[in-house]
């Protein structure tokens, strides 16, 4: 794989384009991961609130903090994309 990349870079001068493309793919993956995490987290929280409505306050507290932590991964992807 790396040999193919080197050949591409040597023959076509594509290093910059490859880097930009890989950065975009990385950013996309960094956004998909938290998306899956948030979907699962909120789904489970809704289920917990439906089962025990009296615990909704605690569930929402932990859900909000969980969402914030999942979003941090997307922010790391954003930073790496632009760096």
């Amino acid at each position: 794989m790396s040999i193919a990349l080197h050949l591409l870079a040597a023959t076509g001068g594509l290093t910059g384009e490859l880097d930009a493309g890989l950065a975009k793919v990385g950013y996309g993956l960094a956004a998909i991961g938290p998306g899956i995490g948030i979907g699962y987290l909120v789904g489970q929280s809704v289920q917990a609130m439906a089962r025990q409505p009296e615990m909704a306050g605690q569930v929402r507290t932990t859900m909000f903090l969980g969402i914030a932590f999942a979003e941090a991964l997307a922010l790391i992807g954003f930073v790496l994309f632009f760096l």
Binding site: G35, V42, M49, E71, F78
Partner: peptide, 24 residues
Amino acid sequence: LGWTARNAPHALTGVALMSFLVRL
């Protein structure tokens, strides 16, 4: 998320995902 949890809890998952995408 607070507004949705109080007023439309059935839409919480969709709103959470959409708000994440829009904010990102």
